[in-house]
Amino acid sequence: MRAIIRQILVLSILAAIPALISAYIHRDLFQTPPLAPDETTWEQTAAWQRAAATRILLIDARDDNAYAAAHAPGALPLNEAHWERQLPAVIEALGAAADTRIVVYCDDTLCGASRAVAVRLRRELGHTDIFVLKGGWRSR
C-alpha cells in the first residue's frame, strides 16, 4: 500500500510540471470574464429600470415550476418547451413600443436557456435590443 501511495505521489508531481505550465499559459481563465456585448447584470438592469428612458421587459427562461416558485417582478415566462403557448403574452407585452429592451434570465451562469431564448427572440421577432442576464436568477 505504501508503495502505491509513493508511486501515485511520483506521478502527481510529474504531472504537476506540465499542468503548472498549462496553468500559466491559460492564467486568464482564473479571471472573471468581462461581460459580452449582449450580457447585462441585475444591477445594470435595475439602473435601466430607474432611468425610465427605456422600457424593460424581463423574460424568465427557466422551466415553469421554477417560474411558479419565484420570479423577478414583472417577468414573463418564456422557455423553449412551451414556446408557442407563452410567446403571445411576450408579443403583447412588447406591444408597438420599439424602445422596449428585453432582458432574459435563467438559473445561473451554467444554464444556456436564456441565451437560446434570446437568440430565438431575435430570429423570430426581429427584435435586436435583447440582453442575457449574466449569473441568472441565482445572482440576484
Binding site: I4, I5, Q7, V10, L11, P18, A19, S22
Partner: peptide, 19 residues
Amino acid sequence: WLEIGCAFAIFIRSLRAGA
C-alpha cells in the same frame, strides 16, 4: 496530464501499481 502520465506509467513496472 495525470491521465497521460498514468497511461505511460502503466508500461513502467515500477509505477504500474500507482498508475
